[in-house]
Design a protein around this nucleic acid. Structure first.
Length: 551
RNA sequence: GCUCUCGUAGUUCAACGGAUAGAACGCAAGCUUGCGGAGCUUGUAAUCUGGGUUCGAUUCCCGGCGAGGGCACCA
């Protein structure tokens, strides 16, 4: 590993020069390939300490480095950067590693032996699967896969609100409109009717409040029946969506279960949670109610119970929760409260937020004025993708349309830093013109088919050590770093950006090279394409995006 | 009012205190009898504003302006 050799050589030189090495990572890869495969800015950082001009120090460092295995050239550039260019044989090795370590290419051991739980998606039974759930799912799934790739064991958790006013509204709607609780579409209609009536008709409120109480105490046979059936329908429907999105949860938590545990924890700490106007509250950066004056737990209290249930089910080192940004204030207070009552648990919790999705027109609604749900957005994209899928080479055009739609929406979510709002442009998302999920998929399918074709022509891939250095292979070499960086920051977009750059480099290279030209260089080029195929496939997997072999 | 995000090409996004601020779309000009043109090449264009810290600031700190979220019995 040249990176390690360079780092060690740098440390040795600094030690020889009696300069204290900085704690943080000294080696980086420059944004542009012209500036080398690795670079370090330590001469700039340490110039003052060494009492030298940055460039002079850089020269001194380079003089002390001597030759490093795998490094072809060392240059001093700019204000005092030291740039390292690797030998061709290093890239030849990279190509071989990428091709031969299926499912492991780019893996690291940064979290070896650690246990992580990642909670995301969190839709509510009886309600629609919203865009927000789609965003939480896309980010959470990718984060989970990235962490798995750092050697950790990961469990996926889904926390769902199966009790509360929204449920009562849906049940009221089911009864009023005489809809079937076994039809998932009817549940959405019922909720909309109930929610609307609750707002507009004051006489309806007591009815819905009464149903809400009955859901908690299960005293009404008819309500129980409707509730059980509706809950089952809803959860089964969500499973279909998870399957399409590529998520398989290990743990499911429900508010109906976390509620009583949450109340217990709050009641056990009267010094922390105090009475106020009949409710039980916590005074943090702002005051939040944990138990209402009616004695019902709020989401805050339930969260305390949830944390404990999670810890009991799985001895994690870290528990990550992905939710909408609008909940960050709430989470802050809950964690502050938890630091007092469950301190050892509180420090294992980490909250990641995502922003809101908007349409270019501004509002998140369709032409007809309906609110666009996560599900309707997906279905809409699938319909559009079907049109093109019909002309594709795919064996199963329906499956391809689905894969492309999932890629389209997930890419848009994962291409930018989480926590920020997203402007979703349907045309752009589905476009194959670059900066889209389908563009990455297309590059992968092309590489895959090319490797297949080489096999039918009996062209045996073989790396040429002397011809292995190119912009494409130099980028290939950075894949493991991109993965590690994204995993460390819990930011899938860092990998997404790399993937776009890499796919673009491949397309560019492909346009210039003739791979199966029958020449002596052909086996080498096929090996490179195979490495590209493995990288795109692995990268897409880490983003939670399907990678079809034919499009 | 308090508080949390955030403000970068025409648009949508990058940039771990460092090199000439990097892409994609758009726009302009080219490339095709192809191993998949669903592609490629070239050009175009940006750090909201005023201070401060620093050898060096898109990045850190303070003020202003602007956008979005949150601020007690919803989740």
């Amino acid at each position: 590993m040249p990176a390690q050799a360079i780092t060690e050589a740098l440390k040795r030189v600094l030690s020889d020069l009696n300069i204290a090495a900085p704690d943080e990572k000294v080696l980086e890869h420059p944004a542009e390939l012209e500036k080398g495969d690795y670079a370090t800015g330590i001469a700039l950082k340490l110039a003052k300490q060494a009492g030298m001009a940055p460039r002079a120090l850089a020269e001194k460092i380079v003089a002390g480095l001597g030759t490093i295995p795998g490094v072809a050239k060392i240059e001093i550039a700019g204000a005092g950067f030291v740039n390292f260019f690797l030998e061709s044989k290093v890239f030849a090795e990279t190509v071989d590693v990428a091709r031969s370590t299926v499912g492991k290419w780019g893996r690291n051991a940064d979290n070896a032996g650690k246990k992580f739980m990642v909670e995301y998606t969190d839709p509510n039974p009886f309600k629609e699967f919203h865009i927000g759930h789609l965003m939480s799912n896309a980010i959470g799934e990718s984060v989970a896969r990235l962490i798995e790739y750092t050697g950790a064991e990961v469990k996926r958790a889904n926390y769902q609100g199966d009790v509360g006013p929204h449920v009562a509204k849906a049940l009221w709607g089911l009864k009023k409109l005489a809809l079937s609780a076994s039809d998932s579409a009817a549940l959405g209609k019922a909720y909309a009717a109930g929610a609307g009536a609750y707002e507009s008709d004051a006489s309806v409120r007591p009815e819905i409040d009464a149903i809400n109480a009955k859901v908690y105490d299960r005293s009404d046979t008819e309500v129980n029946k409707l509730y059980d059936e509706g809950r089952k329908t809803s959860l089964a429907h969500f499973e279909e969506l998870y399957k399409m999105l590529g998520t398989k949860f290990d743990f499911y938590y429900f508010e109906s279960e976390t509620a009583s545990r949450g109340i217990d924890i709050v009641r056990q700490h009267p010094d922390v949670f105090v009475q106020s106007e009949g409710a039980v509250v916590y005074h943090g950066s702002h005051t939040r109610v944990f138990i209402t004056s009616k004695g019902l737990p709020t989401y805050e209290a339930k969260e305390l119970g949830l944390a404990e249930m999670k810890a009991a089910a799985w001895q994690f080192d870290k528990s990550i929760t992905v939710t909408a940004h609008e909940q960050s204030g709430y989470f802050e207070v809950v964690i502050a409260a938890m630091q007092q009552v469950q301190p050892e648990l509180a420090q294992k919790l980490k909250h990641i937020t995502h922003g809101m999705m908007r349409l270019p027109s501004g509002k998140m609604s369709s032409r007809t004025g309906d609110v666009i749900t996560g599900e309707s957005l997906l279905n809409d994209l699938i319909e559009q993708a079907k049109l093109r899928a019909q002309d594709s080479r795919a064996d199963d055009t329906k499956q391809l349309a689905q894969d492309v739609a999932v890629a389209a929406v997930k890419y848009q979510i994962l291409k930018q830093a989480s926590g920020r709002d997203i402007v979703f442009d349907r045309e752009r998302a589905l476009s194959l013109d670059g900066d889209s999920g389908p563009y990455l998929q297309y590059a992968h399918a092309r590489a895959h088919q090319l490797v297949e074709r080489a096999r039918t022509q009996s062209v045996e891939p073989e790396v040429d050590i002397n011809a292995a250095q190119s912009d494409l292979t130099r980028l290939l070499h950075r894949f493991p770093e991109a993965v590690a960086y994204a995993a460390k920051e819990l930011e899938p977009h860092l990998l997404t950006n790399y993937m776009l750059e890499f796919a673009s480099a491949f397309n560019s290279w492909y346009a210039q090279e003739h791979i199966l030209d029958g020449s002596a260089g052909s086996p080498h080029k096929v090996a490179v394409v195979d490495a590209v195929r493995a990288t795109l496939s692995t990268g897409l997997h880490l983003l939670g995006i399907p990678a079809p072999e034919k499009m």
